[in-house]
């Protein structure tokens, strides 16, 4: 340390604040949404503009921290002059666009998408989707009684290009037994709407582990490890980021799954507290879901720049050391 003063005293303040380089922002364009003329950046999606002006647009496969895949199609809106409806989540606004978010075409498509999901997927742990169903007066029961569930792993073995001809007596669903193959989380693909979020979180949008992908085709498409091997034989590193983004409860902490089964899951009685993970020095925000002084689930807020909602196995599941309290009198 050949400069004593430098070592002993903090350096002086810089005169200017260090900043990220500013990107050129294109000039705003004029658009019309539901009769309202307004200006918006052409970098903005229709969904972003809708949210900004308070138009509540339903979304299922969209999440701020993931690349839009625009597959659920529940966010579709009508752009006047466009042959088809467009997904609000990924379509960027263009000058002169006239957008209708609640036209009969929009309402019909949203209702039908929700009926399709409601009639083929168990939405019992998807309160948000159930809310949309009510809002759009979707009637999933009008497709007939659901077909009996598939046996374990049967759907995972279906080959593309062939399917058993339907009888017409029942309507097909994705119902199947829950996959329980480890102590940390379960996969109940009866509840899977195939929104791709888990694949994205496991892939380039966050974890980059690629333990799961969409396999198969058409209605038989499903989330799968390679050759449908159990998670412990897969590349899974149990970060649980797939659970964090799952909109329907298909992926769930095993603790939550077990408590729900036992009837002890009591969400209204739970508190959620943000704190910082106690492990490495990255400083990830953990939201601790606590019921009866016990951590029952850990999530991370999406709007935190450190995590963007994503955690690792230690942050997500490594909390048991504060509640292994066998010695404590209850």
């Amino acid at each position: 340390m050949n400069d004593e003063s430098y070592w002993f005293r903090p350096p002086p303040r810089s005169r200017e604040l260090p900043m990220a380089p500013v990107r050129d922002e294109p000039p705003p364009v004029e658009i019309t949404i539901d009769g309202r003329a307004l200006h918006a950046s052409p970098n903005a999606t229709i969904l972003e503009v809708c949210r900004r002006i308070g138009i509540d647009t339903p979304t299922l496969c969209y999440l701020e921290n993931l690349t839009p895949v625009n597959v659920c199609r529940v966010c579709v809106v009508e752009v006047v002059g466009s042959r088809t409806l467009v997904p609000a989540c990924s379509r960027r606004v263009e000058g002169g666009m006239v957008i209708l978010t609640d036209s009969p075409r929009v309402r019909l498509s949203r209702k039908m998408v929700l009926e399709f999901l409601g009639s083929s997927v168990d939405l019992s742990t998807a309160p948000q989707a159930r809310g949309y169903l009510a809002r759009y007066e979707a009637s999933p029961t009008r497709y007939g009684s659901p077909a009996p569930p598939a046996s374990a792993n049967e759907r995972d073995q279906r080959e593309p290009g062939h399917h058993r001809a339907p009888s017409g007596e029942t309507s097909e669903t994705v119902a199947q037994p829950t996959k329980v193959d480890n102590d940390l989380y379960i996969r109940d693909y009866s509840k899977c709407i195939l929104c791709y979020k888990c694949v994205e979180a496991c892939g380039t949008d966050a974890q980059n582990t690629f333990a799961i992908a969409v396999a198969g085709r058409g209605f038989d498409a499903r989330i799968s490890t390679e050759l449908n091997v159990p998670l412990p034989d897969s590349a899974c590193v149990y970060c649980g980021n797939c659970i964090g983004v799952c909109p329907t409860g298909a992926l769930m902490f095993k603790s939550e799954h077990d408590m729900r089964k036992a009837g002890t899951w009591n969400e209204p009685a739970q508190t959620q507290t943000d704190t910082i993970c106690s492990y490495c020095g990255v400083g990830c925000t953990l939201t601790l879901h606590v019921q009866d002084n016990t951590i029952v689930k850990v999530t991370s807020p999406m709007d935190v720049s450190v995590t963007h909602g994503h955690l690792c196995i230690k942050g997500r599941f490594g909390f048991e050391h504060v509640q292994n309290r066998q010695d404590e009198p209850k």
Binding site: L231, F317, G318, F319, E320, H321, N324
Partner: peptide, 8 residues
């Protein structure tokens, strides 16, 4: 700390 949870 980590001994407290069952990591697969």
């Amino acid at each position: 700390q980590t001994a407290g949870y069952d990591s697969p």
